[in-house]
């Protein structure tokens, strides 16, 4: 929290996040039933990223943090995304 402030999330918001996570899990499982070729991994990773972002923002309270912390965490996401994209571009170019 900024400047040592505390923030207590409501049970309602926790419940909403839980439902969103369960829905996204259901979506991940459902998508595996479709033959999407190379996009299967892309979609699975995209759903996983949304889930991770939801957890970090809500359960880890990052949405209440300063812009600096948000930028640092975004930077980590971008870094991992670049690493994965570069790896998969190699597969596409072979």
């Amino acid at each position: 929290m900024k400047n040592g402030d505390t923030h207590i999330s409501s049970f309602t918001s926790h419940a909403i996040v839980l439902i969103v996570l369960l829905a996204l899990t259901f979506l991940s499982v459902s998508v595996t039933g479709y033959q999407l070729g190379a996009f299967s991994v892309t979609i699975a990773l995209a759903i996983a990223s949304v889930k991770v972002a939801t957890v970090i923002l809500n359960f880890m309270h990052v949405k209440h943090e300063s812009l600096f912390i948000k930028l640092m965490i975004s930077g980590v996401f971008i870094l991992y995304a670049l690493v994965i994209i570069i790896t998969f571009i190699d597969y596409q170019l072979r």
Partner: peptide, 21 residues
């Protein structure tokens, strides 16, 4: 340094574009 790992793999069968990169 994060983005140079492929130079260990030039002979491993990675694409020509990746080798250049």
């Amino acid at each position: 340094g994060y983005f140079v790992w492929g130079h260990h793999m030039y002979t491993a069968g990675i694409s020509t574009g990746s080798r250049w990169f």
